[in-house]
Design a protein around this nucleic acid. Structure first.
Ligand SMILES: [Mn+2]
Ligand SMILES: [Mn+2]
Ligand SMILES: [Zn+2]
Ligand SMILES: [Zn+2]
Lengths: 149, 149
DNA sequence: TGTTTGTTCGCACGAGTTGCAGATTGGTAG
DNA sequence: CTACCAATCTGCAACTCGTGCGAACAAACA
């Protein structure tokens, strides 16, 4: 995703308006590596702008995704995550707490892939499922509540 | 997934009952490489057993998945698909019509993966997104209706 | 045939997301 | 600065996919 300033210019260039809601979301997403859900972002936004609507957050996220500024990451269960990092990368998710982190995979060229015949414009999306350090602790006071599930 | 006969034995061994509904679903899933959704399977089942409930289909699919006889495949959008093929494999999906096919990936050992540090018991799940031959046709009478979306 | 569970089914509910429409406001022209 | 219009925001209904619940039902077994 580009900087809030660049996004502002890009939105204006398309005849789209710059609203306080959009500016706030641009700022909250700028450099955000948390892979927040729409709901999570909504809560953050509501802290600074109490009247903002969840609907507006969804709307803006969809707009940004349509413009290619944001990637929507489906993690298998629970809500979609949104990712301002549009570089070629993949993800690990902790199936207990829902934490998502970036994973960079290289050397995929010398991979033998069988079964893609007949499909065009294929792009892979890899999600590693596992447990993060916090959640993987055997038994002790693991009062780490699942933030999402 | 094991054969309907073997599943029948396995269910009995666990004190579970063998109902006509379960037998029908065992049969419809046996060797099925279509990656059907619960709904799709329900329609097939309803052809042979008009009174069967969608709830029962979900229930049975979950039971089989819990027993490790079935894999539940999340394809990013739309309903989960169910897969009696429990071998180590991945999937391509046509983003237009929803067709899912098996993909076998080998040589993943000499892959450089960065970012998994701190995560345990990680297993990758790869979904290739693209367009199947039927849907990729440029313009002509592509009256191929999206079966799912 | 009767008893005991596990199962089925219909329906209500829940999560996540989108459609809709009236109220609101940014951008701009006068 | 004011007026206007189109884009936007917001709240709510609706929608999709899936699950919880409880009454009716039926396998398994004595
Ligand atoms: Mn990412
Ligand atoms: Mn498969
Ligand atoms: Zn965790
Ligand atoms: Zn297709």
């Amino acid at each position: 995703m580009r900087s809030p300033a660049d996004l502002t210019a890009a939105f204006r260039a398309q005849g789209l308006k710059i609203t306080p809601q959009r500016q706030l979301l641009f700022r909250l997403l700028d450099g955000n590596d948390q892979h927040p859900s729409a709901e999570a972002l909504f809560h953050q936004a509501a802290d600074e702008m109490p009247g903002i609507s969840l609907r507006t957050v969804y709307q803006t996220l969809n707009d940004l995704a349509d413009m290619g500024e944001l990637r929507q990451v489906s993690v298998g269960c629970g809500p979609s995550r949104f990712d301002p990092n549009t570089s070629d990368h993949h993800h690990v998710i902790c199936d207990r707490c829902g934490t998502v982190r970036d994973v960079y995979v290289s050397g995929a060229d010398n991979l033998a892939i069988e079964g893609l015949d007949g499909f065009a414009a294929v792009t892979p999306s890899i999600v590693f499922h596992g447990e993060c350090t916090v959640c993987a602790r055997p038994e002790p006071n693991n009062n780490h509540s699942p933030k999402e599930h």
